[in-house]
Amino acid sequence: MAKNKIFSLFNPRFLPMDYGRAHYFLFRLFKVRSVGLDGKKYKRGFKGGALIAANHTGFSDAVMLGSSFWYRRVFFLASEEVMSKPVRAFFLKLIGCIKIDRGISDIDAVRKSVSVIKDGHTLAIFPQGRIEKEDGVSDIKSGAVLIALQSGAPIIPVYSRPPLKKSKKRVYVIGNPFYANEYCKKKFPSVSDINNISEQLLEKINECRAVYEKITQGE
């Protein structure tokens, strides 16, 4: 096996993240089922830097989403509330959380997110910006699209909800990757361009939701 291949699976620089991924793998086996839009088992459909945009139903989402993509190092954008306690923030940073302060124009967090993606990693964002326990996604923030436009990476829409029965595996529906840049060729994307692409993303997350409903019907 080539050295690069080994490093893509395990890298001492990302030791805590890779340790976490070992746990993700176990979750993946016993707790999570990933499917594509066709309802069949999801095939790893992307390489290189990417942005995962998923709905947010609870604190377990990060672990479960990480488990769906256990074969990749997944960084997360975490709100200032989650990162408010220093000890917790220290450990969350170790496992790949990037703090974003939603109250200000957090340019540093956006830039760091773009650099993580440009380094070839995966960044997961919950574009609703908060936990929403209701079914479906009605509104998302435009930050995810801004990061995607800046990094040039594909966005992967994802939808999931915790299963009603705890014995069931949690189903993740993973949509087809799409490029925000395909919807906007301008040098300066305007606010309305970014809002339009955010609408597209919302539509794609809800497409995943429709598949989710079909698969979990009767469960």
Partner: peptide
């Protein structure tokens, strides 16, 4: 959020990076 968009626009136009 407008300031965030503006900062990205400034980076493209002037090549300078504003920080927090």
């Amino acid at each position: 959020i407008g300031m965030l968009y503006m900062a990205m626009g400034i980076e493209q136009e002037f090549g300078v990076k504003l920080t927090n």
